[in-house]
């Protein structure tokens, strides 16, 4: 990296820091708890804090790991929308059904693309758990759709910088903006005008990324199959 680029990078860090909110008191209390946990772990000196993520289906390492991570999320989204269209919620409008069918097809296309591209490196089909979703209710379905789409965008954004191949990064970029289009649409269905919000962007008007461990801890509620993300790049 050139000296210029390094200096640019430092300035980005500073500006991003300005764009984030200060800690709330509750957060501070949580920190206190975390801090004591750190002391204990340090005393025990046993590195097993990734245990939740280090058993089950192994996503793999490097770019393949990131692509399998994306494949896992697309499996989840596709399975969700397949169910949404198979058992539409009460009083769904023709327009809503048409556009949700579009999204279903996009997610199936993403899933099948990764499956084909990964070929023998692809992880197995994941078993989903949608028991917490009431597919007969619009609020439950759209609320879950919003959670999945926003999560997907933050996941791709968080994983993008970990990709080393330009081709793979471009592919991820082609998909993430479509997920963002979905996310904005779903959010507008729930609450018109909420296509962006302070829950997904920071004070610089930039989307908030999430790391694989954060994403999988949220998505895990809907995936029965255990996923091992411990070999992903970071």
């Amino acid at each position: 990296m050139t000296k210029n680029a390094a200096s640019t990078e430092n300035k980005i860090l500073v500006e991003q820091e300005k764009g984030v909110l200060s800690l709330s008191r509750r957060k501070f209390l949580n920190y206190a708890t975390a801090a004591s946990g750190i002391v204990l772990v340090a005393a025990g000196c046993k590195k097993d804090d990734n245990s939740i993520l280090s058993e089950g289906v192994d996503l793999g390492s490097g770019d393949v790991g990131i692509l399998n991570y994306a494949y896992a999320l697309e499996q989840l989204e596709a399975a969700f929308y397949i169910q949404v269209i198979a058992t539409p919620y009460a009083n769904i409008t023709a327009d809503e059904k048409a556009l949700l069918t579009d999204i279903r097809d996009h997610e199936i296309a993403h899933r099948e693309f990764f499956k084909a591209a990964l070929s023998s490196s692809a992880i197995t089909s994941l078993e989903v758990d949608f028991s917490s979703i009431d597919f007969t209710k619009r609020e439950s379905v759209l609320g879950t759709a919003k959670a999945f789409e926003d999560l997907g965008v933050s996941a791709y954004n968080g994983a993008g910088p970990l990709i080393t191949s330009k081709d793979y990064l471009t592919l991820a970029g082609k998909i993430v903006s479509v997920e963002a289009r979905h996310a904005a649409f779903i959010r507008d269905l729930i609450n018109p005008g909420s296509f962006v919000g302070s829950d997904v962007i920071d004070m610089n008007g930039m989307e908030i990324s999430k790391s694989p461990s954060m994403v999988l801890s949220v998505a895990g509620k809907y995936i029965k199959t255990k996923i091992n993300a411990s070999n992903l790049p970071s």
Binding site: V153, S177, A180, A183, A184, V196, G205, M206, E207
Partner: peptide, 19 residues
């Protein structure tokens, strides 16, 4: 860092486009 920032603007533009 720079790539992350660019991606974080990219998806916001896509949300705007969608709306």
């Amino acid at each position: 860092t720079v790539l992350g920032a660019a991606l974080n603007i990219h998806s916001v533009e896509a949300r705007h486009a969608s709306h």
